[in-house]
Design a protein around this nucleic acid. Structure first.
Lengths: 197, 197
DNA sequence: GCATCTGACATACACCATGTATGTGATATC
DNA sequence: GATATCACATACATGGTGTATGTCAGATGC
């Protein structure tokens, strides 16, 4: 038989997960600033001691929740792109559309897009969000290198696309009719991408 | 002679301005969260009583500073657009380029774009920032109505443009060579706008 | 020109929230 | 079985905010 995991480790992992899930729930429903650390840990049946033991305070817990939520979105975008091997343009379009769907999820929208910059400060937020932006930058770079887009600084093109993408995702969920708003958004994005060729 | 302004009113206006300018300075240099209300008013030679009398606490003062800074940018964009009467397309392009310059100013960049959402929360920030976004929306609407852009929901197009614009402005100031970055950004933006026609 | 009132602040206090230092009991180790 | 260590809980110090109240100069009424 393989080594048994010591009980203490199991217990610790359990409380860690309890903190993560309670944090995710409370941050999502009430907002980072509105929920105090004390309230949060009591909801998990713990004390602030546990919070400071496993994470670096309330912000540390938020960062952990942030990374979890963002990674879920990252995987979803990755799967959408991986479904079209051999077509770099199709991959980027599919990735952008998948990203719109990811942004439509309440968890991603609230935790990563809206509360992230507020809770972490823009600087730290950029650090943690770098992985997601990197996907788009990588895609654009590939398109330029492959000759599908004209020669241009990839950072600039990716930044503009990212800005349009994010702003569009927010307006979609705020729109009275999200479905048609999403359709309009993808049309705008495809046109934008084409204008870079 | 016309009525003389009572002395008390003059005094009050003076302290109000002292608070505004100290706030603008401190928020810009140190950041909203990092500067306490107490520290701020002491730097202005006052106490928190004065702050709460004239504004609604630290956040109220920030909102006032925010509106001042944003209005300066608004006027600058307005002047740039007014310089090209009769050419709606030229006006929008000129407005976008002027906006890039406005975003390059440290005060606007820090107070409105970076600290604004953090200090006010996105919801309140959107309310106060609505005037600036409205300029772009109005421009896009005019272009669509005038047939310069194809029939499409103006909100969607304006949102995408705004997102690209803002994101580009941030990357420009962070770029090693802002001048060429700005040139690249305007090229991307012109192409984007053309893709909406 | 004196009394009164009002506006512009200052002072004092109560209340959270956070971070940290320390305590404690269960569990792993030897 | 004694000891060390890990996973928390408890207690306290600190700092920041909002509010209630006090105070004094300056406007107002007679």
């Amino acid at each position: 038989m393989n080594a048994v995991k010591p009980r203490r480790e199991i217990y610790a992992e359990t409380t860690r997960r309890a903190l993560l899930e309670t944090g995710r729930l409370y941050f999502l429903e009430r907002g980072y600033a509105a929920v105090s650390a004390e309230e949060l840990v009591r909801a998990a049946g713990l004390t602030r001691g546990a919070l400071y033991h496993h994470f670096d305070g309330k912000q540390g817990l938020f960062e952990a929740v942030f990374e979890e939520v963002q990674n879920e979105g990252l995987h979803r975008v990755g799967r959408a792109m991986a479904a079209l091997p051999g077509s770099p343009e199709g991959q980027v379009v599919a990735g952008m559309e998948a990203y719109l769907d990811v942004c439509a999820e309440p968890a991603y929208r609230e935790i990563v897009l809206l509360q992230g910059p507020v809770a972490l400060g823009r600087e730290r937020w950029l650090e943690l969000h770098h992985t997601m932006r990197g996907v788009l930058l990588h895609g654009v770079t590939t398109l330029i290198d492959g000759g599908h887009l004209r020669e241009q600084p990839a950072e600039t093109a990716a930044a503009a696309l990212y800005g349009a993408l994010t702003e569009l995702s927010l307006t979609i969920t705020e729109a009275p009719d999200p479905a048609t708003a999403r359709a309009g958004a993808t049309a705008v994005l495809r046109g934008f991408l084409a204008s870079l060729a």
